[in-house]
Design a protein around this nucleic acid. Structure first.
Lengths: 215, 215
DNA sequence: GTATCATAAATTGGCGCCAATATTGGTAAC
DNA sequence: GTTACCAATATTGGCGCCAATTTATGATAC
């Protein structure tokens, strides 16, 4: 019956339920297609019914879960077409500000990026899936920030969640994770060398990588 | 006391409250800064308390209204910086697929666009603010559709709502409305002439126009 | 006359109950 | 033995009440 089994050992939960469900979807704890029964979530996250409903409504607005009236909510099944399209959008947005990123890069910001890239590498070895995921986010966020468009940074963060509903499959092989880590450093190199074209090339490659991989 | 006065003569309302509030914000009936008291909205749209709250929560997620805990919700006050940034994002996204639009344009699609452009012109004279707004949306949607990226069309529709919180000020002079109408036709001309560069130039001009205008 | 505090009114927001609907399991008929 | 129908159960989702917090008002002291 209950589609949600795994109990994340919760202490006294103070955080927002939406975030918690989001994390569990992003980390693959709630696989695509899973029916999210309100009673299960209520118990799983130790919260009330209205909180669960608000979270589900928000996530369905974000297209992360699908809502079938009188049937319930289930984790969205990402289709390949949409995934490719969103990838294209990310390439468009992130390469568009590459020139600005090169222009705005200082030795300070490059040092910060190096730190974040290294932190990502560390988390590959020692961190949880979530920590690893967030380390990746932090790096890209800091990089994008150099573009000088805060709204763009936020937007990319948003649409990033829109297809990475299957993040596990993206990062499933260690080889690919390590390749991503190396690419981070290569991007910083391009930034240091003030080579905007190379940076664009690397960004496009980096984003499309998970999608273009043969099954 | 009550910040919301105007009563839109409602019959038996069957539609979603979120859409109704959204429309009233977009059409300027609920100006920026207006406090959205739950009781007022309840009466205004003839709906229940939970419906109002769900609508307000959704709109705050979309950044259209701001939420102050224990104080309430109010229509978001758009700041110039964000407006400029979102404008830049739109230019990036919409010009990025200009080549594809030129490549995919058929005589059929051009005829459809002509129709929509003419419909926009009609609504300038005879339509309501909402009809006019939606006619504009329909034209740009159809144009973007030629880019072949459905996710991008949806995304642009979304971020479009994010700054046009002051649509009234955008369209306040008839001269500018008519200029927009002419630009629509010029875009179609460029499409017909297979001139992608000119199309990009026109799109950038068309989007930035409302923002660049001197006060 | 003005500032401050206490009291009262209003508004937000959390919580639980109950009706409507879908699903499952059992039973009977063919 | 299989299928169709019906009853029982479980789940969703709408609705209203009440506590907590904030804001407005009026009275009192300086």
């Amino acid at each position: 019956m209950s589609e949600v089994q795994s109990e994340t050992a919760v202490g006294p939960e103070e955080r927002d339920v939406t975030e918690l469900v989001l994390q569990d979807i992003l980390t693959g704890m709630l696989p695509a297609g899973t029916w999210l029964k309100q009673i299960d979530l209520e118990r799983r996250y130790d919260c009330t019914r209205p909180e669960v409903r608000r979270a589900l409504d928000r996530l369905s607005q974000k297209r992360l879960v699908a809502h079938v009236p009188n049937r319930g909510y289930h984790v969205y099944q990402p289709d390949d077409r949409n995934a490719k399209e969103v990838g294209d959008i990310r390439v468009i947005l992130e390469t568009a500000v590459a020139d600005m990123m090169v222009a705005n890069a200082t030795s300070d910001s490059i040092a910060t990026l190096r730190g974040l890239a290294r932190y990502f590498d560390e988390m590959t070895l020692t961190g949880t899936i979530l920590e690893h995921y967030e380390a990746n986010l932090a790096f890209h966020r800091e990089l994008l920030l150099l573009g000088g468009n805060q709204a763009l940074v936020d937007l990319v963060s948003e649409i990033r969640q829109r297809t990475s509903s299957a993040p596990v499959s993206q990062w499933r092989t260690r080889a690919r994770i390590e390749k991503s880590g190396r690419e981070h450093h290569m991007m910083i190199d391009a930034l240091e060398a003030r080579d905007a074209e190379e940076l664009k090339r690397l960004i496009a490659l980096h984003i499309r990588q998970p999608a273009d991989t043969p099954k």
